[in-house]
Simulated scan of single mutants.
Amino acid sequence: MLFDTHVHLNADQFSEDLEQVIERAQNEGVETMVVVGFDKPTINKAMELVEHYDFLYAAIGWHPVDAIDMTDEDLQWIEELSSHQKVVAIGETGLDYHWDKSPKEIQQEVFRKQIRLAKKVRLPIIIHNREATQDIVDILKEEDAKEVGGIMHCFSGSPETAHECLEMNFLISLGGPVTFKNAKKPKEVAEEVPLEKLLIETDCPYLAPHPYRGKRNEPSYVKLVAEQIAELKGVSFEEVAETTTRNAKKLFGIN
């Protein structure tokens, strides 16, 4: 059984055929998914979905690109929602230096606030990182995020950075890019990071794996990620599926 640790089934791209998308995922052995909300509308939709489907759980946080829009009231709201039995993580949060909507210092402040919240409510953190690796590592250390740990979502860094994150109690999650023919770093990470420290995800509707690259991603494709990791590690698909599912359930506190 597979566990997709990062889906955006709350995205508009799934508004027409959500039932069929979920059915296809279940047919491929995906038994559990975490729906990630990262602003007001997507958090509300994530909460709706987890109320409706028993195999869906929610992560709630504020995306770094939109950090400039987050108010203290929003943070308070996230804290209140975090006590819901199906909320299993804070995030996605982090830093994104690719887009310039939110200034770096505001992103960093909002990131720190969410790390502190995660520690307060005792939930793991889901980290979004784009072109900001060193600042993310520094802030996680300064805020002692190791206390709750979490996930380096759709990890694109080097094996060296991966080991640094493991030391801070963060698991490494790999998605579609590990299947791309020219993706050297994710493949090296898949080979080097112990299976007990790996998770799998789609980040759907984004980052579809080969051979669907460039098309809408969906949770059923997480099987392709697991198959690629199995091939790179020289182990069975079943072992990857079982171990990454066990890792995810342990991290999220799902029995």
Rank of each mutant, 00 (worst) to 15 (best):
K40N: 12
E227V: 00
L198N: 08
K120V: 02
L123N: 10
L174S: 05
W99S: 10
V225N: 08
S236A: 08
F170S: 00
L174E: 09
P64H: 05
V50M: 02
P103A: 10
E196R: 06
Q20C: 00
T202Y: 12
P205N: 13
H8D: 15
L2V: 08
R24T: 00
V235Y: 07
N182V: 01
F237E: 09
E131C: 01
A59Q: 05
V189N: 01
C165D: 00
K223V: 08
E231Y: 14
G234Q: 05
R130F: 09
E105C: 03
P211Q: 13
C165E: 00
E105F: 15
L224K: 11
D138Q: 08
Y53E: 14
N217I: 11
M152C: 10
E105A: 12
D144E: 14
T32P: 01
L166M: 15
H84G: 00
V225C: 06
K215Y: 04
C204E: 11
I127S: 03
P41W: 10
T32L: 15
Y212W: 08
K197I: 04
D135N: 01
A67M: 09
E201R: 09
M70P: 00
F14N: 06
N27L: 14
E92M: 11
L195F: 11
E79V: 04
F38M: 00
I172H: 02
A11V: 07
V7I: 08
I68D: 09
Y221K: 02
T161W: 00
Q107I: 03
K141L: 06
I172L: 11
E218K: 04
E227S: 02
A162Y: 01
E80V: 03
L49P: 05
I22R: 03
A162C: 06
I126W: 03
L49W: 07
T93L: 09
D138S: 04
L49D: 11
K40E: 15
T71P: 06
I151K: 10
D4C: 01
K113S: 05
K119D: 06
A58Q: 04
D74H: 08
I151R: 07
Q107A: 12
V7T: 14
W62K: 05
K187F: 02
E188L: 14
V21L: 06
M152K: 03
V148D: 07
Q228E: 15
P209A: 08
E73G: 06
I172A: 02
A226G: 13
K45N: 05
Q107G: 08
P103W: 03
N255Q: 11
E28T: 14
Q13V: 03
F180Y: 15
P103I: 09
A118N: 07
K86Q: 12
Q26H: 14
I125N: 13
M168Q: 13
V88M: 03
G253L: 05
L140T: 07
A145Y: 06
E147S: 15
P205C: 10
I90G: 01
L166C: 10
